[in-house]
């Protein structure tokens, strides 16, 4: 009976989704003329090279036009990491070290991950430093760096993340983000307003505050995701 009801519900949801999507033609240009922008997407596309001289329009939207949302987003990630730690809290004895993996990995995996780990860090740093020129940015670079730490945690039994270092990096990155926004508020009467010279498009140093904010977001996301993984991996077994 329950199964019949659920299949009926799925059929209704699927029918209405299909009907509504059939009215939205795939590949139709809904943005309109870029020279006289009427939609918000066309506005962002036409204004970004002149106003911000940032090559990647998505970076311009995420960091500058909707920068306040990004501040909220990193706050949500921070809250997720904190909530995870408090839900899974278990009192440790003093000086007790909980290994992240139960059995030590093979020598091949250990040597290989030691070799790959710096390369992953460099790739992540490249992705978030060049976030305004190429695809990528703070979130992607931070996730890549967290993957590198994950590799080390999985292959070495006694690899520990220093929690005070994670906290300091995260706090300093958050303070940098917020204070850049506040400087913009003081100088140009709007939060996260661009107060630095924008430079030329496709230069590494261009776009004013956008690369600075994305580097801060990269450090913050890397610290938060590494903290989440470290918390989950060092759960005390029963």
């Amino acid at each position: 009976m329950k199964k019949l009801l659920i299949i009926l519900l799925l059929a209704v949801v699927g029918y209405f989704l299909t009907v509504s999507m059939s009215n939205i033609k795939f590949g139709a240009n809904r943005m309109g003329d870029l020279s006289q922008p009427k939609t918000v997407g066309a506005f962002y596309l036409s204004k970004t090279p002149g106003e911000l001289s940032v090559a990647n329009v998505i970076t311009a939207i995420v960091v500058n036009y909707r920068g306040f949302d990004t501040l909220g987003e990193v706050s949500v990630l921070f809250l997720a990491a904190t909530g995870l730690g408090s839900i899974l809290y278990k009192k440790k004895k003093k000086g007790e070290h909980i290994p992240t993996v139960n059995k030590p990995s093979s020598a091949l995996l250990q040597a290989g991950s030691k070799l790959i780990f710096p390369a992953i860090l460099v790739l992540g740093a490249y992705v978030f430093i060049h976030g305004h020129l190429t695809p990528g940015g703070g979130f992607q670079g931070g996730a890549i760096i967290a993957t590198g730490f994950l590799l080390m945690m999985m292959s070495y039994k006694d690899f520990t993340m220093n929690h005070s270092v994670i906290t300091w990096v995260e706090s300093l990155a958050g303070i940098t983000f917020a204070s850049i926004g506040l400087i913009g508020l003081i100088v140009d009467h709007s939060f996260l307003e661009n107060f630095l010279p924008i430079g030329y498009i496709n230069d590494l140093i261009s776009g004013g505050i956008i690369p600075l904010i994305y580097v801060a977001v990269g450090f913050k996301v890397a610290a938060e995701l590494s903290g989440v993984l470290d918390t989950l991996l060092s759960i005390k077994e029963k």
């Binding site: 139709a28 809904r30 090559a55």
Partner: peptide
């Protein structure tokens, strides 16, 4: 998505693409 569209990333000559 838009037919025949490219990713929204400007190249160095891309200013004219507007």
């Amino acid at each position: 998505y838009i037919s025949n569209g490219t990713a929204p990333i400007y190249s160095s000559q891309g200013i004219d693409l507007v």
